[in-house]
Design a protein around this nucleic acid. Structure first.
Lengths: 123, 123
DNA sequence: AAAATAAATAGTAATCATTACTGTTTAGTT
DNA sequence: AACTAAACAGTAATGATTACTATTTATTTT
């Protein structure tokens, strides 16, 4: 993968964003630095970054978001403020439930929890 | 919601299908009975059936599928045969983990587990 | 049972996200 | 400095979904 300024900025945009931006948002962000960048370039680089394990895709209500945190973690989506929070989980229990009760072999999972977040709960 | 043959068949198609069909698959299926049905009709009825809680949407790799089982359950996707299995889970443990450790209030969740299924594991 | 009404339909056009294509530019190599 | 293949910008194409409109039809009212 040859260096390009475009890919660097696409990556940087995701890493600096504390939420999980869409391709559209990343495009707008990078456009500030490289006004002539095209959508194809953003998508191509997103694909490569995913392929090489630098970022990860998360699907939310059918919309594709990108996540710079590639360590295993889960997402909590607040129904009120729509913020997406990362959280970790002790998952041995439910993985073993699936393995023992259903006799499948588990290699991974994606968990998305919804509700109201601690900030919105205060009111 | 006024009765229509089209909606009845859209619903019936999902209920009789043991996997989780896409809009496209449902369209083809219903077309056998009503050759002049249009895609708009399928989408509109899917939307209404979801809205009234008769069916449920599941997203899988960014592709929208429909599920006639509205009882709480989770999905296991086999990486080898691509079958989707339903399974239930004792989830009190991880829900309380999120509530206690992160102080969010949980109202629902979606869990998608991947791996190799018991049929594919035999070989 | 006929007339009235509003919901649902078929067919088509429009939208939106994503991918494909093409000729030009550019990072890294010889 | 010349070379080569990867990456680019710009644009066209695709595929899923939604919007629009004139017509049909389920249900209610007379």
């Amino acid at each position: 993968m040859r260096y390009s300024k475009q890919r660097e900025l696409v990556h940087a945009s995701i890493m600096s964003s504390k939420d999980h931006p869409t391709a559209d948002r990343i495009f707008s962000e990078v456009k500030k630095e490289i006004p002539k960048i095209s959508f194809g370039t953003v998508y191509r680089n997103l694909g490569q970054l995913v392929e090489h394990g630098f970022i990860r895709i998360i699907q939310l209500d059918g919309i594709t978001h990108y996540d710079g945190n590639v360590d295993p973690h889960n997402h909590f989506i607040c129904n009120e403020c729509n913020r997406i929070y990362d959280f970790e989980l002790d998952n041995e229990d439910f993985i073993s439930q699936v393995e023992v009760k259903n006799h499948h072999h588990v290699s991974g999972y994606q968990l998305m929890v919804t509700g109201t977040c601690n900030k919105c709960n205060i009111n």
